[in-house]
Design a binder for these strands. Structure first.
Lengths: 146, 146
DNA sequence: GGTCAATCATTGACCCGTCAACTAATATAA
DNA sequence: TTATATTAGTTGACGGGTCAATGATTGACC
């Protein structure tokens, strides 16, 4: 139990370190941030989608989504239009240009991912994914008012 | 191999999700950010230390360390003084008040960590820690110019 | 039909991080 | 000893995130 306790802190700390070290490298390797590519990938999978619906698929809040999309619009990667049937909704879709440039990012991302998991065989990957999923469940069940 | 490839992306994405979901909850549960508590914990373990030496122990850059410490100084958690023997160095140390308030944070942190790893037995923890360490190694070996 | 509530998007204030430029102090070496 | 390099710390510009307040639009209900 004493070992288990001392490992506990290390695991959570390691997760924290990994994320802090991975984010900047991901961005340098692929040329885009994880969040933004995540956003674009969701857009890639659909034709047109409302911002809130998009937001629910992604780990960032409304405000950040709005700002990302405004910047992406300026860059000509996406277009936005109001839902004619309900003007509260903003529909977003990739431009053709945006759609083609994503695949380059995706390729870089795939190369990056392979490096991160270098040396892990199939069994280990599945084990790891399973554990991470359990951790994610635990985290989502944590209630700050406790 | 196809399974392995599809899992690859999920693992890295899960790591990304976990960190994004954990950080805000950690802060709400413990009342302090992971980075700041990390900084304070290092300070707790020593008597007096220079800022660069402190920075090397932590995953944040010089600028952020400076800003953290200035804020902590305003709150009365730390004191700073120049090294009389070399005025380039800024020595930092916890105040008595800072030293006592850390232990409360540490307790909350420990409770938080236990929740995150709920349901993991000792063997799993050690396996997981091992895998995460390998991933961290892989990440640190990634060269953006490649 | 008009008021009230709910929903989507936007904005502002703030926190935290990086990078790059800068200042100040010290070390080095011609 | 004086010019140059190095080192520690600070600051400004910026990117990106959250939360809370606001505005606009629509739905629901008396």
């Amino acid at each position: 139990m004493s070992n288990s306790c001392s490992d506990e802190g290390k695991i959570v700390y390691r997760l924290y370190e990994i994320s802090k070290q991975t984010s900047p490298k991901f961005e340098r390797c692929t040329g885009i941030s994880q969040s933004r590519l995540d956003l674009l990938t969701k857009l890639f999978e659909v034709d047109e989608i409302s911002q809130t619906e998009l937001q629910k698929e992604v780990n960032i809040d409304h405000a950040a989504v709005t700002r990302h999309l405004k910047q992406l619009e300026e860059k000509g990667m996406v277009t936005r239009r109001k839902n004619p049937a309900d003007n509260r909704f903003m529909f977003v879709r990739l431009t053709d240009e945006g759609r083609t440039s994503i695949s380059a990012y995706q390729d870089e991302k795939q190369r990056f991912i392979s490096k991160v998991l270098n040396g892990f065989n199939e069994e280990e990957r599945s084990l790891l994914l399973n554990m991470l999923t359990r951790i994610q469940d635990n985290v989502s069940n944590i209630d700050p008012n406790d």
